[in-house]
Amino acid sequence: MEIKKLDDLVYQTRRDILRMVHAVSSGHPGGSLGCTEFLVVLYHEIMRLNKNFEMDGINEDLFFLSNGHISPVFYSVLARKGYFPVEELSTFRHINSRLQGHPTTHEGLPGVRVASGSLGQGMSVAIGAAQAKKLNDDSTLIYSLHGDGELQEGQNWEAIMYAAGNHMDNLIATIDVNGQQIDGSTDTVLPMGNLKTKFEAFGWDVLEIKEGNDLNAIIVGLTEAKNRIGKKKPVCILLYTTMGNGVDFMMHGHEWHGKAPNKQQLADALRQNPETLGDY
C-alpha cells in the first residue's frame, strides 16, 4: 500500500479514537494514538489475513492486544480493515455494545480472539496460540502488543522465560515503549531498566524501532522482524512511541493516558487531523 493511503488511515484512525473517547467521556486516547501507526501498518501492510474471521485463525497471522485499554485504536483499525461496520464505532463503551471498554470475545466482535484489560496476560495467550500453530504445521505468525508499564506484571516474565526456553520462533512480541503509565513516567513509578538487555538476557532476539510513530520506520522494522522468525528465538520489537502522538497537547506526558477530551479539546485535536476516509 502507498504511504499516502497508510497516512490517510492513520489520520482517520486518530479521528475515530478521539471521537469515540469524547463521546463517552472515558477511555484511553494516549496509548491508542501512540500505537496508531504501528497497528495500521501491521494490519494493512504486514499481516497475512483471511477474508472471513474465524476464531481458530488457521493459516492466517494472528494479533493479540495485551494492553487492552488501548481498545479505541484496536477497534478503529479492525473496523477500517472490514471486520465490522465502521458505524459500530459509535457504540464504543455504550450499553449493549460489542465494543466493550476493554476488548472481549464475549460479545462476539470479529477480530478479537481473547479478552484483555487485566494486564500481563496477553503474552501467555500469544505463546499458546503460537504453540498451536506449530502443532498444526501452520507457518503463519503470531503478533502481540504490550505496554512498557505492563511489563511490571510478573506473568510477563514467566512468559518471556518460557518463550525463549521453548524456542517460540513464530512469535513477534512488540513492546510499546512510551515511558508513561497512569501515575506518571515509568521511571518515576517503577523504573523498567534496560528492556533490550533484559529481553536478550532471557534469550530473545530484540530489535528496536526508534521512530515508532514513523510509518516507514515501522514497515522496515516489522519487515526485519519477519526475517528473523524461524531462527529458534522469539522476536521482540521495542517500539519507541510518543503517547498521544498526533495531537500536540496530548503528547509528551502521561496526562492523557486515560482521559477524554472535552468538546473544545476535541475540536482542536480534530483540526490537527483532517478527515480522510469519512468519519463513522
Binding site: V125, A126, G128, Q131
Partner: peptide, 22 residues
C-alpha cells in the same frame, strides 16, 4: 507442555492453545 513453576503462564498458554483448535 512442561511449563515450569509458572501457573499464571500455564493458564494463559492453555487459553491460547484453544484458539488453534486444541
Amino acid at each position: 507442555f512442561q511449563i515450569g513453576i509458572a501457573e499464571a503462564n500455564m493458564i494463559g498458554i492453555a487459553a491460547g492453545l484453544t484458539i488453534g483448535g486444541k
